Each structure stands twice: as C-alpha cells, then as structure tokens.
Simulated scan of single mutants.
Amino acid sequence: MKWQGGRRSGNVEDRRGMSGGQKLTLGGIGGVIVLIIGFLMGGDPSEILNQVQNQASPATQQGPVESTPEEDRLIEFSDVVLASTEDVWGRLFQENGKSYPIAKMAIYREGTETGGCGFGQKAFGPFYCPGDQTIYLDLSFNRELSNRFGAKGEFALAYVIAHEIGHHIQNVFGVLNKTNAMRAQMSEREYNKISVMTELQADFYAGVWAHYATQLSDVKLTADDIMEGMRAAAAVGDDHIQEQSTGRSNPESFTHGTSEQRAYWFKKGYESGDLNAGNTFNDPSLQ
C-alpha cells in the first residue's frame, strides 16, 4: 500500500491532549457482550451507549499533546486515507449529480465527547456518529487489530476507516435514519438482523472505495492489500470475536455479520465498484 506523500484531508481533529473520564459499570455476561459489540466496529454507537448503565458525567481537560513517532505516522496515515475516501466518494457523487458532504475524524485517547452520540470511549472501538458526521478513533485500536484480532498490515486500519465512511454514506442516503427508526418497532432478535445488513453494507462501501482508490486518489493499492482487507473484515466477524472471547458463538446475537459475510461483502464492493450492487437489505441470504 503506497500512501506516503499523498494528499492529507485536513479534516482530522487531534484530541489526544484532551483528557476525559467517565465511570463505566457493566456487570456479568451482559457487560462483556457490550464491550465485544463495541470492538466489532461501526454502526450507530447509540446501540452501545443505550446499554451502558450507571455512567458518571465526563470531565474534560485540555493539555499538551504527547505523541510518539508511531502515533504521528498513524495520524498521517489516517489523514491520507480519509482524503482518499473524499476523492473517491466526491467523484462518485459528482457523477451522479450530487455533492458529497465531507466527514470528519476525531483522534482521541480513552474517551471524548461526541456531537450527538454521547460520550465515546475506547472500549467502543472506532465508530461513526451521525449527529456530527464524524469518525471517532483511538489509535490504540490499531494494536488491537493486529494483536487481538489478528488483522495485520497497514490496510487493516484503512479498511476500518473506509468501513466507518461507509456508515457516513448510509447516513447521507438516509439509511441510518430508517434503520434506527426500526429499532423501536422490533424485538432485539429481529433488529439484530437489520444491524447485520447495515454493517455488511458498510463493508460493501469500503470495498467500493478500494475499487476506485488507486484510480481516483493518491492511495495506491495492490492485490495483497485487498487480501489484507478481506482478512481484516473476517477478523472482526461476530462469530470469530465471540468464539475468541467466550469459546462459542450465538448467531441470534450477531449484529455485524459472520467473518465469511463481512469478507464477502467487502470483496463484492471491490470487485463490482457498483453502488447498486450493495443492497444488503434485499439479499435473501440475510433475511
């Protein structure tokens, strides 16, 4: 993956100098599941926030930013990848007679306030907040990808960012509003299926970005990068994470899709590059 020297978005806010604290009390298996869901990446963070109990009000203070060469590199990398998504989606929207609304990214440590999604925490993993159209990312998640989930290589983090941008695309298209409205009308088991469809479509959009990235942006991808993306998608499948954490998986509790499904939809987006091919909500296999 070639990205060094590429255009930087400039829409990345560095919040690492802001320290925030919030009490998070989660008991028993329920608490474990909430944290597991958080690490699955993506979706409406309110799905996690609504389950969190006994949270204290956060306190935030501004301080000097202490960085490391690794963090500096990850911030530059994330900035270039975000710029690449802007270039790709900007062109695709333009070709369809529309203007692409830019998403922002906030880099933080441990916890941070969001613009409409409550207090974001490291335990939630990377997430997109529709309220302020911002991706929230704690850089330590890059180590989680490699060490905990086994998703190695630079493209693994690029896939994560592209997946969250996929949720931004869904927000722009009005998909997130519709799926969130369904939540109050369904049982948890029924809504989990909608959540899976939503996440898999975000994986598909990540694949669409990868399809056009080399052609339309400064990020240049190889076949090996795409394989890394598929492995990263598989690494954060519900079944893989649940089995890794508890020794078994429960399909009825899946909210993001299996490893096979996530890799499949990312690959489908990459191979087709066709926005019309990503309607997961009408796919019979997901009903």
Rank of each mutant, 00 (worst) to 15 (best):
71 E>I: 07
98 K>T: 05
105 M>P: 09
138 D>C: 05
113 E>H: 06
153 G>H: 02
153 G>A: 01
81 V>G: 08
125 G>P: 04
126 P>T: 15
166 G>R: 03
186 M>V: 04
161 I>K: 00
142 N>Y: 08
102 I>P: 08
171 N>E: 12
111 G>C: 13
120 G>E: 06
166 G>T: 07
126 P>V: 13
152 K>N: 14
79 D>R: 00
127 F>Y: 09
137 L>Q: 05
175 V>E: 11
116 G>S: 04
169 I>H: 12
117 C>Y: 00
85 T>F: 09
167 H>F: 08
90 G>D: 08
93 F>V: 03
136 Y>W: 07
164 E>N: 12
93 F>W: 14
125 G>F: 07
131 G>C: 04
169 I>K: 07
178 K>D: 13
121 Q>V: 15
76 E>H: 01
84 S>A: 14
185 Q>W: 06
78 S>I: 02
186 M>H: 02
178 K>M: 12
120 G>Y: 01
165 I>Q: 06
180 N>V: 11
75 I>M: 05
98 K>R: 14
126 P>L: 00
83 A>T: 07
149 F>G: 13
143 R>G: 06
100 Y>I: 05
88 V>I: 13
149 F>K: 12
169 I>S: 06
186 M>G: 05
72 D>K: 01
141 F>D: 10
99 S>V: 15
136 Y>V: 07
127 F>K: 13
171 N>D: 15
182 M>Q: 14
176 L>A: 08
151 A>Q: 06
65 V>C: 05
116 G>Y: 00
84 S>L: 10
83 A>K: 04
71 E>M: 02
94 Q>V: 08
114 T>I: 11
135 I>C: 04
158 A>I: 00
175 V>A: 05
143 R>M: 10
185 Q>V: 03
148 R>F: 09
118 G>Q: 05
76 E>F: 00
140 S>H: 11
163 H>T: 06
173 F>C: 09
73 R>T: 12
126 P>E: 03
85 T>S: 12
99 S>W: 10
108 Y>F: 15
75 I>E: 04
111 G>I: 13
112 T>S: 15
179 T>N: 09
152 K>W: 01
129 C>T: 05
90 G>T: 08
129 C>D: 03
185 Q>S: 10
98 K>E: 14
108 Y>M: 09
174 G>F: 00
142 N>A: 13
140 S>N: 12
80 V>D: 12
182 M>V: 01
101 P>I: 07
161 I>R: 03
162 A>T: 14
95 E>K: 11
148 R>I: 10
132 D>S: 04
124 F>K: 12
